[in-house]
Design a protein around this nucleic acid. Structure first.
Length: 293
DNA sequence: GGTAGACCTGGACGC
DNA sequence: GCGTCCAGGTCTACC
């Protein structure tokens, strides 16, 4: 057993960071809210599969996992640091929200962080599985994918890590359609996995890219299955909240907030948050909506 | 650059 | 039981 603590830049709220995005509900994440325990099945670069048990600690996160070598612990630390964005600085965003009653709850609750997957490949796959479907179907498709292509925990074959690009690259389109039930998304995932596995597409480099956000968005839109919504969602994950992930939920919220429940266009959704500039996506994400339906 | 139509799936809904 | 609609959209063809 290995236990260590990772510090977070303050303010930090473990529960709000976990729930900032729906990923915590989707395997191989699992959140026990009563116990404030987030678990995640991680495949290390050596191929070793471990369960991470993450709980709030004083000023950060406590990580409990299987016995690890020094190098493995360093890798696990880096992964958790990225997943929570532990050192991210939101002071400029907080300063901007102090004049907006609809965002008054943001700073006191340390909102801003978005829970993300350890690899950007995983976040791209997850995002493709959120498009044009119900949230329940997103969870089911991801579960099928993990169960069929993920490496198991050594002592519990029912719990598996998220599949690697290499593993998915070896799957067939028919397999993903007929067994994983991904529908028309199947060829998108096969192409993505093959490009990532071959090195043609370096998805992990997106995390540290120096490209301006507009250019980075163009690169994301080149990926089959990634459109305006998905690109905005992935840019949020990358810490570039310049765009709003406009989906049917966003349209509904904006419609009731400012248009008396009437249908709104994506341009109208954007226009309400234009003043927030580089924080546009965050202002939308954490807005205190009047409509709760 | 803007827009209509097709696209997998499966749960909700009306009949 | 059965048909239709639609959801945390995107792609392609066409104008």
């Amino acid at each position: 057993m290995t236990t260590f603590t990772l510090p977070a830049r303050q303010p930090f709220n473990f529960h709000n960071a976990v729930r900032s995005h729906g990923w915590y509900q989707v395997t191989p994440f699992h959140y026990d809210e009563a116990a404030s325990l987030l678990t995640y099945v991680l495949r290390l670069s050596t191929g070793k599969v471990v369960e991470l048990r993450l709980t709030p600690a004083t000023d950060g996160i406590q990580v409990e996992t299987a016995a690890l070598t020094r190098a493995e612990q360093a890798e696990a630390s880096d992964r958790v640091d990225w997943m929570f964005g532990l050192q991210r600085d939101f002071s400029d965003f907080y300063a901007a929200t102090r004049h907006e009653p609809k965002l008054a709850h943001v700073e006191p609750n340390a909102y801003g962080r978005v829970l993300r997957s350890p690899t950007f490949f995983e976040d791209v796959v997850r995002t493709i599985l959120t498009t044009n479907t119900l949230w329940a179907a997103t969870k089911r498709m991801t579960l099928n994918l993990v169960n069929q292509f993920g490496d198991p925990l050594p002592n519990d074959s029912n719990r598996r890590a998220f599949p690697t690009p290499e593993r998915l690259a070896g799957a067939s389109e028919e397999q993903l359609r007929n067994e994983t039930r991904l529908g028309y998304r199947s060829p998108y995932l096969i192409e993505l996995a093959r490009r990532a596995a071959s090195g043609e597409l370096d998805l992990e480099a997106f995390k540290t890219s120096d490209l301006p956000t507009l250019e980075l968005r163009k690169e994301l839109l080149k990926i089959k299955g990634i459109g305006a919504y998905a690109a905005a969602n992935l840019l949020m994950i990358l810490g570039r909240p310049d765009f709003i992930p406009i989906d049917s939920w966003a349209a509904k919220m904006v419609s009731h907030e400012w248009h008396d429940g009437q249908p709104v266009t994506p341009a109208e959704v954007e226009s309400h948050f234009e003043q927030w500039g580089q924080w546009k996506g965050m202002a939308y994400w954490f807005w205190n909506w009047s409509y709760q339906g």
